[in-house]
Design a protein around this nucleic acid. Structure first.
Lengths: 239, 239
DNA sequence: CCAGTTATAGTCGATACGACTATTAAGGGT
DNA sequence: ACCCTTAATAGTCGTATCGACTATAACTGG
């Protein structure tokens, strides 16, 4: 911050990259765009774009999110700043510093074309093959971060529509973590945490599934999960 | 990432800001530098500087850390990327995007002058008054991040010298969290976590304190703390 | 009406954790 | 030397939580 007058500096391009995550038929999906130009022409990449002079990185991320998903209102969606990638060689053309965000969507909108000409598609997380630039790493970091925050925050409700069943909430955990959870224990833990969820007064979803109708819940006011909801011990250490 | 040819972009200055934290006589301290020029002349600020064309933000942070602390070898120190601050108005002079890092030091070196002319000083975290720019927020975010990572990682050993007692380790937790911990329980938890610490074969520190000499430990190989070591429930939700 | 399916209720043992008490091994002062 | 203080270490006990599991309820589709 010091030394503006003493040291020359090389201005950089600043971009945002988005890992837009959603749960589609029981599998974690990420929104990708196909690159039309070199470098990495034909390869898939995370959506993103330049930060404009009058906006913050968060502003830019929300704008890009709206453009890419075609959603009219993205103001309620959760945007999580993951980290910033600044390797000098991460873009072969020029110096590009990129602030990465993870966005969580309740239900996947149309695989929208987006503001630009390139096509956009939902791809399952596992089959999100080698991406352009360092986007494999960014996507992995975003996934790690979201998985970790599920443990000790109420973030999971961001993947759910305004009203949801505990089964849907559990599926968020199972899908992101890639592990099965015991249903009664999950239920007990969620309900025992004050402010995690609040039951919708009346209504229970009836027609949809073919089992006993489940009660509907809304997100409660709490943001942190204390004590946390730890994923089953798989001996591996995350990140 | 798309549209290099279509959209103009305004290049930004990219800097790093460092929250260099250490524990000094039982209190958390942060390294600050006094600004000599406008804006915020005479105010204290976090050390930092521009990211050079050939280095990443991590490289720049480590270089600045060495310059400001005067330490010869900063390669073993823990550097934690906190987040990136990109509000267009955060620097009145120009557009500056700053990547913030937290650095953890075992023992505070001399309040070194640093590479630049401005003076540097260790200031206790509480009395780190209103800082320049958005550095109050950056410092608070760094503190939050470190406090949170103490809960579920073995990060605390980064505040300790290569060999330390469990009392010193406990003081790290107490100082960063600002809460007292029960000593036997802390000890039990740390020793029960495989790989958190490893006892030094012989030697017990004798001369120093005026109690029973404590056994010496080194950092173990583990990086995560499962299950986590939660801070006492104070009913308030962090961050 | 029966089989399959899903939600919900409840039990039981192992473990982790908070709050304590007790013992051990030093140093300082008189 | 002796006792008091200080700090490290050992151990106890009750409670809360968690994983694993069984049981029941409510619906759908043949």
């Amino acid at each position: 911050m010091r030394g503006y007058d003493k040291h020359a500096f090389e201005p950089s391009a600043v971009t945002v990259d988005l890992a837009v995550l959603t749960i589609c038929r029981g599998a974690l999906h990420v929104l990708l765009v196909e690159r039309g130009q070199e470098p990495y022409a034909g390869r898939w990449a995370l959506p993103g774009g330049f930060v404009r002079p009058e906006e913050s990185a968060e502003d830019a991320a929300r704008r890009e999110l709206a453009e890419e998903t075609g959603l009219a209102d993205v103001s309620g969606l959760h945007l999580e700043q993951v980290r910033t990638y600044s390797d000098p060689d991460r873009d072969p053309r020029m110096r590009v510093v990129s602030v990465a965000f993870a966005a969580l969507l309740p239900d996947p909108p149309q695989p929208h074309g987006g503001g630009d000409a390139a096509q956009a598609r939902w791809v399952s997380y596992e089959s999100a093959g080698p991406l352009a630039f360092d986007h494999d790493r960014i996507l992995a970091d975003a996934h790690d971060r979201v998985g970790a925050k599920l443990e000790y925050t109420c973030l999971a409700t961001s993947f759910c529509p305004p009203e949801f069943t505990l089964g849907e909430l559990q599926q968020v955990y199972e899908t992101v973590w890639g592990t099965a959870l015991d249903r009664p224990n999950f239920r007990r833990k969620v309900l025992a945490t004050p402010g995690f969820v609040a039951q919708v007064p009346d209504a229970a979803r009836l027609t949809g599934g073919r089992g006993k109708p489940a009660a509907l819940y809304r997100a409660g006011g709490a943001t942190v999960l204390r004590p946390p909801l730890l994923r089953p011990t798989t001996e591996g250490r995350p990140s």
